[in-house]
């Protein structure tokens, strides 16, 4: 099997340059919106809910929002973003005529998706900290966690992109997978409220271990059990990374 090389960084650099040229509209979706959600849901809904365990509701959802919006960033980038570059702009076609191979392009896209997750996760964490919603120095590990989950979600998204005939097919991916996942992964309410079957299902959703870990890092409640979450993220990430490499290569080599 042909693997990628360091040259994938060239694709990452290209995407970075474009992003920093047009970052203003992007920032609204990925930073302003989550802040509004934390504040309105946290304060508004929180007034009814009171507290969850020892935390106020707003403290509870802040890490969930960090995790899920980092996930959204990588996912959007490696679905709509990658699809437009691949199909409409023919950007990949141009790149693979240079010393970069198809694999470098694929990996460059995934790493860029992960970088978007890193930026979103970090930005929301900083703002949450300003609002006093972060209570532990362990939160310094959120950026690397966001990047790691970005690799996983970027790979999953790119795998789906490799199967996507037309851009509107992403509606299925979002309404059947991404959005439900964000509701059943402990982002907005704790999973132990659910019947056992739902709890079991939620543990195969890749956002669940991410939410779990992020929440632990924000609150400082660190224990060895978290290693399982980490392992799950790495495992799912590696599998989809390899799968995306294969299916995307198949799509791009005609």
């Amino acid at each position: 099997m042909r693997l990628f090389s360091w040259r994938f960084i060239r694709v990452w650099q290209r995407n970075r340059d474009v992003f920093f040229k047009l970052w203003r509209p992007e920032i609204t979706g990925f930073v302003v919106e989550p802040i509004i959600i934390i504040l309105t849901m946290g304060l508004g809904l929180g007034a009814f809910i009171g507290s969850i365990g020892q935390e106020s509701y707003i403290q509870f959802i802040a890490p969930g929002i960090i995790a899920s919006y980092a996930m959204f960033s990588a996912t959007f980038e490696c679905t709509y973003g990658s699809f437009v570059r691949m199909e409409y702009q023919k950007t990949y076609d141009a790149i693979i005529a240079t010393p970069l191979n198809v694999e470098d392009v694929i990996v460059g896209e995934i790493f860029w998706g992960a970088t978007r997750a890193l930026m979103t996760g970090t930005a929301i964490t900083i703002i949450a900290a300003i609002f006093g919603l972060v209570s532990s120095p362990w939160a310094l590990l959120i950026p690397p966690l966001s990047f790691l989950q970005g690799l996983m979600f970027g790979s999953i998204a790119l795998f789906f992109t490799s199967m996507t005939p037309a851009i509107y097919s992403f509606n299925y991916f979002f309404t059947l997978f991404v959005t439900p996942m964000s509701f059943f992964s402990g982002v907005y309410f704790p999973l132990d409220q659910f019947p056992q079957i739902v709890q079991t299902i939620s543990w195969v959703l890749p956002l669940t271990p991410v939410t779990y870990l992020t929440r632990a890092l924000v609150s400082g409640n660190i224990h060895p059990g978290l290693l399982w979450s980490l392992l799950l993220i790495v495992g799912i990430g590696v599998v989809f990374f390899m799968v995306a490499l294969v299916t995307m290569r198949r799509r791009l080599t005609v």
């Binding site: 060239r10 650099q13 340059d17 047009l22 950007t91 790149i95 010393p99």
Partner: peptide, 28 residues
């Protein structure tokens, strides 16, 4: 190799100069 494809695949996200600089970077 220098390749000039039949169909335009210039990078619409970049300027004219940006296209050339970015392409040069693919060649390191």
């Amino acid at each position: 190799l220098g390749v000039v494809p039949q169909l335009d695949n210039l990078d619409p996200d970049l300027t004219v100069l940006g296209n050339l600089l970015t392409f040069a970077r693919y060649f390191s």
